[in-house]
Every structure is written in structure tokens, then in C-alpha cells.
Computed example of a mutant assay.
Amino acid sequence: MAKAGPASVEFRNVSMRYGSVTAVDNVNFTIEAGKLVTLLGPSGCGKTTTLRMIAGLEIASEGQILIGGKDVTKLSAADRDVSMVFQSYALFPHMSVLENAAYGPTVKGLGKEVAREMAMAKLALVGLKGFENRYPSELSGGQQQRVAVARALVLEPQVLLFDEPLSNLDAKLRRRVREEIRELQQNLNLTVAYVTHDQEEALAVSDRIIVMSNSRIAQEGSPRDLYERPANAFVADFIGDANLIDVTIKSVADGQASVAIGPATVPLPSRELQPGPAKVAIRPESLLLSKVQDASVLPGTIRKCAYLGNHLDIVVDTPVGDLFVIQHGHPEMLEQGAPVWLSFAKSGVTLIPPA
């Protein structure tokens, strides 16, 4: 049985309404075939509803959804070549690991032997060879997660969906399982839409990230784009830590802005902003403790300093407010009240339009 292979997913002006509540508002995006794209955002932003619309578990109120170029907007879940791994794993407790994995082909009437072969192949792929006869209650959280992935993969869907797949795992296991999911996706060339509210997870696994806020897309791009060039204060604050500061753009020439950050003047890419008030987002690791005292540094005093093994978390009181600074390596602790000067790294300091 030849499979079609991974397919692209496209949303064209898609909205989802429940009565007077708009859960997803006029959303447009494309997930390229063979890529892993994360829908990232806080609770209630519309990301899970978007995922459920790809699956056909919710039917869009407006707009078009295409999978592999084919309009599936009104098709039911059963008529789409899509599989979903649920947050709860949704394994059948009375079925063995093998029976769980073989469920899809069995229901499709492919015969017991074929279903068993397909399930065995996918269980081997996720590292569960030898676990076929166990029951879900006899497995760890990470193993249950893998059974859910094997079951979703068994029919080789065009699109694989993950809804907060790591939220039931502890922190160490989470890192390992997200690496396994990414490896599987790349090795098998799968199209994956992945929902999470955990920005570190999104940065680690994604080809592209779609950040959602209030039922709309706030920004989409590569993990690096979003981290280093956030489109607005929400994205800057949601992806990683950021110091958000009111600044003044003094002048702009050839795409470079001269920016007053308190008493310091710093050159930054203008990002098409004009002279006047703006905001700047500064990553904590992009503030550097400086020995030089000139017009490009910001004076301050140490308010707090905490030792976290491989780095220090520092709060510095400055003319533009308290700034959070991370110093990596094994620096010496800094005394409260000690004077310091902060300079700005080449990356991780970015102008963002005022709201």
C-alpha cells in the first residue's frame, strides 16, 4: 500500500467561532511538507483550536484549510489523512501495547496479521521492541508517550499532530522525549504541527514557530528570528526573558538608528522605525558588565546577585529601571550596592515598535 508521503498544511483566512466567542480570528499560515511547526502561546490563545481544525475535530466557521493542496475544510476527522497524539495519550487501558498500536489498521479492516506487522514496525521505531505484551499501566510516562506516537504513526499519516505532548513528563524526561520526537520527525520526513505553551520546547524542536495571542498570529518565523527580532513586546516577553525599556530614537540613517537608552547612546538596526519614542527589548545575556565608562554604557548599582551554578542572575538598578542580567561562566559574586557599568552586546538588543 503506497503512501502519499508528507503533505503541506495551509490555512487561508480561517476563523472559529463558538456563538459570540471567537477562538481563532482570521488566521493565515502554511506548514511546508516535512517540516515541524510549533503553535506557541499562552492558555486560551487559540492554538489547540487551530490544531483541532487541522485534525477535523473542529470544523472552521470561515476560511479554507488545505492539506497537500486539497481542500479539506468540511471533511470529518475520519476523512483526513491526519493523526493526533493527545496530551493525555488516550491509550486504551484494557489493550496491550501491541493492540493499542495496531488499533488504526484494525479499525480500517486491514486484517489482524497486517495490523500486527505495521504496529510491530512502528513500536520498534520508537524503541519499544519487547514491550508488545505489556499494558499501559505497566509503563512509565515516557513509554506511554511512545506508544501514543507509534499508534499515531502506524498508518503513516500525511500530517502528525501533537497537543502539549510533554506536559505530563518531568523536566529531565521532557528534554529527552522532545529530542526523540524531533529526531523521528526528521528521519521519517514527517509534517508535524506541534502545540505547546513552553517556549524552550518550541525553540528546541521547531523549524518554524507561530506565536499566537488573543486568537491571532502575533508573529511567525524561525526560532532565531523570534528570539532575536521579536515583532512586538508580547513576543519579546513571551519567548525568553527580555528587559523591555522605553527609549528614544534620536536619528535614523541607512537603516541604523541612534538610540538613547537613558544616558547611553547605542547604534541599533532601525527596523523601519522613525525618530521618536520606541521600546527596546534586551535579552539578559546581552547586557555585559563593562570596565569602560563612556557614552555607550549605562551606569548602575547591584541590587541582587544570585549564584546558579553555571551563571549569575543579577538585578541592576539603572536610570531606566531595574534590569535583569545573566552572566555566564564562573564569575565572582557581586556585592549589593556595588557600582557597575553595562554595555550592550551586538545581538539580543532590538528595537520594537511602540504598542
Rank of each mutant, 00 (worst) to 15 (best):
V266D: 04
G240D: 05
L125R: 15
T73R: 07
N100I: 04
S76K: 12
S290T: 07
V72N: 10
G41A: 05
F11W: 05
V27Q: 01
H311E: 13
G19Q: 02
I261Q: 00
G309R: 12
T50D: 06
E62Q: 13
M1G: 14
R146A: 00
V177Y: 06
A102R: 04
D163N: 08
G68L: 07
A90C: 12
I67N: 05
L351F: 09
F344R: 04
V37N: 03
G44D: 04
S76P: 14
V192W: 05
M1S: 15
D313Y: 11
A257G: 04
I261T: 10
K35I: 01
Q256D: 12
G329F: 07
A233C: 04
K3C: 01
G63V: 08
V14D: 02
A193F: 08
G19K: 02
D81G: 11
T73Q: 09
A281S: 12
A78Q: 13
S343F: 01
K346Q: 15
P157V: 09
S222I: 11
R80Q: 10
V280E: 05
V252K: 06
G141L: 09
R17V: 01
A78Y: 05
T301A: 00
V177R: 03
P267E: 10
G56N: 08
S167Q: 05
V126I: 08
M16H: 13
N243F: 06
A345S: 15
V252H: 05
A171L: 14
D322R: 07
V247Y: 00
H328F: 13
A231F: 04
R303Y: 06
A345D: 14
N189S: 14
K172I: 04
Y135T: 07
S270T: 02
L139T: 09
T49Q: 08
S251I: 08
I239Y: 09
A233Y: 01
P331F: 09
S222T: 15
V325R: 05
Y227E: 08
R174V: 13
L184F: 04
V280D: 02
Q144P: 10
D225H: 06
M333W: 05
S222C: 07
M212R: 02
G329Y: 10
N26L: 00
L75E: 12
E10H: 03
L40T: 02
V266R: 12
E335V: 01
I326H: 10
F344K: 09
S290N: 03
R116Q: 15
A355H: 11
N13W: 08
D322N: 13
S88K: 00
I239L: 13
S222E: 11
F92C: 11
V85E: 09
P230L: 12
H328D: 10
C45G: 03
T318M: 03
T191Q: 09
G68K: 02
